[in-house]
Design a protein around this nucleic acid. Sequence first.
DNA 1: GCCAACGTTGGC
DNA 2: GCCAACGTTGGC
Length: 164
Amino acid sequence: MSKLKKHWLFKSEPNDYSIDDLARDKSTGWDGIRNFQVRNFMREEMQIGDEILFYHSSIDPPGVAGLAKVVTLAYPDHTAWDSKNPHFDPRSVRENPTWLMVDIAFVAKFKRLASLDELKNADELEGMMVRARGSRLSIQPVSRAHFEFVKKLGGVARGRAANE
DNA sequence: GCCAACGTTGGC
DNA sequence: GCCAACGTTGGC
């Protein structure tokens, strides 16, 4: 497996969990993923230290609100085993868990939202997955160049983030 | 709140 | 293994 740091975009509905919630919590378990493609990203590609664009969806305007990072490798998503949990999935058995999760940690809140509208209008972000119509993956791979450009849009000082 | 896009399910 | 039906996502 590659040692190169990868970059991701994590979607979250801020009414459920926002960048401010993550700033408060410092880190959180990203459970509830029930999509095989995303599960495979976590299992096969995600590594500790990978950098994350934290994206607010289903709000006006949607956009990238800050930065986070991956702090664990993928491990079984226990919410799949909890019949009281909305993400309960009886197919996932303990000996062979269907669903995985990672923990992520807060890195920085953007000075300003990098709105979806801006992302769509930046030539530098040609081909970025979140721009595509019907792109519903809740975790998406992001190229290093796109990551850096969005970070610039949001206005985080180069290098260390405020809370690191 | 509408609805297009798309992943998943299940009948056949 | 096809594909219609269904449920969910998420921009608008």
